[in-house]
Design a protein around this nucleic acid. Structure first.
Lengths: 188, 188
DNA sequence: CAAATTTGCTAACAGGCGTTCGGTTTAGTA
DNA sequence: TACTAAACCGAACGCCTGTTAGCAAATTTG
């Protein structure tokens, strides 16, 4: 792993636990055992790090979802696959997921607009699945926007809790959450 | 409304949109049309504001839940009531809810520990309802911790989206979310 | 009206911030 | 061994931060 990647990784962990604004370059340097100024041999700026982390995660979410998108399965099954893909990315690198989900607002333009756009597209793809399920009558709801927002927010707390050494694998978690969202507590 | 309350309110709105660390006392003063130093005739410190907002919201959540706690109804109905209470508090003051949910980590000790403790108690009360539902067989799940975390995170995005002038009332929203969580997309 | 209290301004403080820069050490290569 | 390039240091920069102090209006109270 290059020094730059190492910086990104340590920074990600600090950004997640303390927040971007509350993490200083001196904190970061201390964690790496070097001086603050030395960081600038490897990175362009503090926000430079944030951008890399955010857009790398965005790419991973998109890549995972692309494998689901065009499969020829019923909407409910496709939603299961999308949930599993989302959970897999979320649990693969929880600190980065935390930064992606909570620190993106510290991006400045034009990165911020680009980020918004990518997220909108991702959410729109999910809404399409829900709309398809409504059309076939599989999903008994009538507000796909609301459903998708609830869906995402019910998944996006995972990074705060998931531990690789825990007893549930990412796929176990995805199955649990799929059952909960599709069938509810009562018909689980 | 006293000047102090006005400061808290404006600060809440800024803390929510920019984050606590990224909001300066000079920003806040500008918004109020005064100088930064003048704020200190009314408040003790920046964190002083954050503490008031966080603990006031915590009190409101607890108060709303206390009215549900001891009602003699089946667990699924009690969960519906708890969700409705939670949603009501969340939508009553969305900016304050946003600060409560996202900015609490900038509290310093001993406030931070007190906050953690209060949140644990709140979550524990919800877990008790779910456990009761598992015992009666009403809820077909076996991991109340996981369920409660999912439940809360599926509610706690609301403050980002809810607008009082929107077409759904807090009770409409609560009903929608209760149906989704109890019955799922398929049996909605 | 007079006294007291609230509210606000101005200026400054001490420290922290991200970042820059010239020079030095280290590691790799031929 | 001699050269090159990457990695790092240490000091400094200009700016921003929360907060304080002394003083002046404004407002409320008796």
């Amino acid at each position: 792993m290059s020094r730059k990647e190492q910086i990104d990784q340590v920074a990600t962990s600090l950004f997640k636990s303390r927040g971007f604004a509350a993490t200083t370059m001196r904190d970061l340097a201390l964690e790496l055992g070097i001086e603050a100024g030395s960081l600038y041999s490897h990175i362009k700026s503090k926000e430079d790090i944030l951008q890399r982390v955010c857009f790398k995660m965005a790419d991973e979410f998109n890549a995972a979802f692309d494998e689901v998108k065009n499969q020829d399965v019923p909407p409910s099954e496709k939603l299961r696959l999308a949930i599993a893909a989302h959970v897999r990315v979320l649990t693969k690198n929880p600190p980065a997921a935390g930064v992606f989900l909570n620190e993106w607002r510290h991006l400045s333009e034009p990165s911020l607009s680009k980020f918004h756009e990518m997220r909108f597209q991702y959410e729109e793809s999910l809404r399409e699945i829900v709309r398809a399920g409504m059309a076939t009558g599989e999903f008994k709801v009538n507000d796909e926007k609301f459903v998708v927002l609830t869906l995402l927010s019910s998944l996006n707390w995972l990074h705060m809790w998931y531990k690789p050494e825990g007893k549930m694998s990412p796929d176990d978690i995805a199955e649990f959450l799929s059952n909960l969202l599709l069938n509810g507590l009562k018909h689980f």
